[in-house]
Design a protein around this nucleic acid. Structure first.
Lengths: 145, 145
DNA sequence: CCGACTCGTCAGAGAATCTGACCATTAAGT
DNA sequence: ACTTAATGGTCAGATTCTCTGACGAGTCGG
C-alpha cells in the first residue's frame, strides 16, 4: 500500500472483510459450506421476529429481486422459512429456521473470537470506543436502522 | 434492525457501504459511469508507482484471475495501463492512466465531503480517534499492508 | 369503490467470482 | 551450470450475484 493515510471507506473495508473471511471460513469448516457471502449478508439482517423481503433488500443495499433470489437459496438450504405476514396480506416474513439458528450460534462464536483478537490488539477500552463510534456513525449512514 | 449491539463486522460494513454508494453515485453523475464497484475496489489499491496484479488481488481478497478480469476492463476504459515490471520479467505493473487520475481526483472530493459529514456528526476529535483506531486495527487485519 | 402505492415475483441480461490447467520467468539448491 | 521449486500471469469454463423492466396481488386513503 502506498499511503499511510487511507480514506475512511477503505479503512472500514479492510477489517470488515477480514471478519467476513474468518466467519465464512470457519462456517464452511464446520459443515455450513452451502452458504455464500451474499446470502450471509442478507441472512444476518433478519430480525428476531422475522423480516420482510423489502426490508432485507433495503438494509443490505440490494434490489428486492436480488434479495428474493438469495432468500430462495437460503430457504432451499434450510436456513430460513417464509411465513405469511399477519399484519399485511401482501407480505411474507422471512424467519430463521433451525439450521439457520445453528449457523448463527456457530458464527457468533467466530465473531466473538475475532473480537477478542482485535481487543488483544487495540486494548479493551479502545475497542469499546471503536464500537461506540461505529454505532454512532451508523445513525448517520443507515437510514433504515 | 433487531438489536442495538451489532457485531463489529456489520458495524464496519454499514458506513463502508454508505461511503462506496456516495462515491459511485457521484462518479457516475460526473461522467465516470463506466466504472463498477468491483473495478473500483481493485483500482483504489494501485500504489503510486504501480502495482502487480498479484498484489492487487491479494489486497482486495480476490483471485488473480478475477483481478485480471477487472484490470482488463479498467484498461479498456482508459483508467489504467500495464507496463513491464523492470525488476521482474514475469511481472507487469498496473499504473494509473490520465483518465484514472482524473477519476481519482473526483472521488477524492466526494470522500472528503462524506468525511466532513461524518465529522459533523461525530465531532472532529472523535472522528480523528476513529481514524486512528481503524488504522491501528488494519495492522491486525491486513497482512499485506 | 377507485386510484395510488407497496409487496413480491417472473424474465432476461450483464457483471463478478471461483477452480483448474497451463506457460514463462525467476529463485534456490546442489 | 542444471534441475527443481516457486512466482506472475493468462486461458477456459462454470457458477453466483446483481440489475432493469414489467407485472399481478393486496392495501389504504379519500
Amino acid at each position: 500500500m502506498p499511503n499511510d493515510a487511507l480514506n475512511l471507506g477503505l479503512l472500514l473495508f479492510i477489517p470488515y472483510r477480514a471478519m467476513e473471511d474468518r466467519v465464512f471460513d470457519e462456517l464452511a469448516a464446520a459443515g455450513y459450506d452451502d452458504i455464500t457471502r451474499a446470502q450471509g449478508r442478507i441472512f444476518q439482517r433478519i430480525a428476531p421476529g422475522g423480516s420482510r423481503l423489502t426490508d432485507l433488500a433495503r438494509q443490505s443495499s440490494v434490489t428486492k429481486q436480488t434479495a428474493g433470489f438469495l432468500v430462495d437459496q437460503l430457504e432451499a438450504a434450510g436456513y430460513v422459512t417464509r411465513i405469511p405476514d399477519p399484519s399485511d396480506g401482501r407480505a411474507r416474513l422471512v424467519v430463521v429456521a433451525p439450521r439457520g439458528a445453528a449457523a448463527v450460534a456457530r458464527s457468533a462464536g467466530v465473531v466473538a473470537e475475532v473480537e477478542r483478537e482485535w481487543t488483544a490488539h487495540l486494548g479493551a477500552e479502545r475497542t469499546a470506543v471503536l464500537r461506540e463510534l461505529l454505532t454512532d456513525l451508523r445513525a448517520a449512514t443507515d437510514p433504515y436502522a
